[in-house]
């Protein structure tokens, strides 16, 4: 029989990091002395290295590339993988340049009325984003709503985000909830949502929750975690989907395109209802990757059973 302490033990999440201290230092120097273009130039070479030598990164990217570019052929696929590596690197450089103040970026928001609505409401809300575009650079857009914002992430995975947004400092509006906490941080999420806070989660990251199949994402059934919707339904709060894309050399557009109210109806299995909400989120995601095919950084096979 399980002991009382192990039944709901915290869940350890393994995340593989790429790059090393010397590499990051070189990029910082390039940025300092040659600006964005200099850093991008070095990135172009580093991305070739990853394309040729990082079999694991290539394999992970291919699951998306095959679905998004089904007729591209071998060279077309490799070109797409390279562009994805390049864009992801550029987004990281942009984020770093932004937080150090080396370069300023124009952040444009679409559907700002939804954000004002969230800020003005007494109830909390789940802000659902994804590994597409540059969510790190978009987060400051939500820093000035008059509510506490909680990011569900491990500080060690996104130190730059935590630093740039003064996360967890005294008087900071932005706090972290660790997904490694009890029940994947769910207890704390429920608590702060009840206090009217905003909780930002990744719609394509499992944390400690299960997934549900949606009928179609880029032409085939796919699995996405449903924790965000289940929590929102239990707490009776809306889910707001926000995605950001690079739309110019120094410009990002943050789109808050959908507000979903997950409310269970009687007579229908909960899981089926959750699948519908997750499907709605997946359709927003699909629209995004159709519009910005090289800004999708979901590097795991969501189509696999």
């Amino acid at each position: 029989m399980a002991s009382k302490d192990t039944v709901i033990a915290a869940h350890k999440i393994e995340v593989k990091h790429r790059g090393n201290t010397l590499g990051f230092w070189l990029f910082r120097q390039q940025l300092k002395f040659f600006g964005l273009r200099g850093a991008y130039f070095m990135l172009a070479i580093v991305a070739i290295h990853y394309l040729v030598f990082d079999k694991d990164a290539r394999r992970r990217t291919m699951s998306y590339v095959r679905r998004r570019f089904p007729n591209a052929g071998f060279f077309g696929n490799m070109k797409a993988v390279y562009r994805l590596f390049l864009n992801q690197g550029q987004h990281l450089i942009d984020h770093f340049a932004s937080i150090t103040g080396a370069v300023s970026f124009d952040l444009r928001m679409e559907n700002t009325d939804i954000i004002y609505k969230v800020g003005a409401a007494a109830e909390g809300c789940v802000l659902l984003t994804s590994h597409v575009g540059n969510w790190q650079i978009a987060m400051p857009c939500f820093a000035h709503i008059s509510k506490k914002v909680y990011l569900v992430m491990r500080p060690e995975d996104n130190r730059a985000v935590a630093e740039s947004m003064a996360v967890d400092r005294v008087n900071s509006q932005i706090r972290l909830i660790s997904p490694e906490g009890d029940f994947g941080g769910a207890i704390e999420i429920v608590k702060v949502l009840g206090e009217g806070a905003v909780v930002s989660m990744m719609g394509d990251r499992r944390y400690n929750f299960d997934s549900v199949r949606v009928p179609s994402f880029l032409g085939a059934p796919a699995s996405f975690p449903y924790g965000a919707f289940h929590i929102a339904a239990a707490c009776k709060v809306p889910v707001v989907v926000f995605l950001s894309a690079k739309t110019g050399p120094q410009q990002y557009t943050v789109s808050v395109s959908r507000m979903i109210y997950p409310v269970y109806k009687e007579g229908k299995p909960k899981k089926d209802q959750i699948a519908e909400w997750v499907g709605e989120y997946a359709s927003v995601l699909e629209e995004f990757v159709n519009k910005y095919p090289y800004q999708c950084f979901i590097f795991h096979d969501v189509w696999k059973e």
């Binding site: 029989m1 039944v7 009890d182 608590k191 929750f209 299960d210 239990a234 707490c235």
Partner: peptide, 22 residues
């Protein structure tokens, strides 16, 4: 036992129990 063996509840059920207690 509520979680794992026993009733077999998971982390998402925990969310509902927290709300239920509230």
């Amino acid at each position: 036992v509520l979680f794992g063996e026993g009733l077999g509840l998971d982390s998402l059920d925990a969310v509902e129990i927290v709300v239920l207690l509230q």
